[in-house]
Nucleic acid binder design. Sequence first.
DNA 1: CGATTGACCTCCG
DNA 2: GCGGAGGCCAATC
Length: 119
Amino acid sequence: MGTAKRSQQSSPFAERVYAIVRRIPPGRVTTYGRIARAAGLTRSARMVGWLLHEAPADVAAVAHRVVNRNGELTGGWAWGHPSVMRALLEEEGVTFVDEYRVDLERHLWEPEDEFSERS
DNA sequence: CGATTGACCTCCG
DNA sequence: GCGGAGGCCAATC
């Protein structure tokens, strides 16, 4: 396979993010910052979102469980419309405190912060 | 090759 | 407690 590369250079940080996202249980939600911190890069939450945009199908299948620090469906438009992601979350039993805001106090899932480095 | 944007967050005033 | 600015890495124009 000569053409087995492109931009999918599977960065160590990317694989770490994908691994964490895949470990997100149903009915549970996490935040980009939480994943970024668990991956080792606390201030690189932006890249997490971009990675999810280029993420494989298995990761994208659970990407709707990833929300921002506010619990808002910031990436809802990635599915075409936030209502789609909201429906998926509701299907898993996730409640919403607002139209597009999940109850983090109720479904916030914290990844294994083995690599979490504090300042 | 340089500048801008991006599924965002943290720090500082 | 709230607001603004910086940061971080990569992709796209």
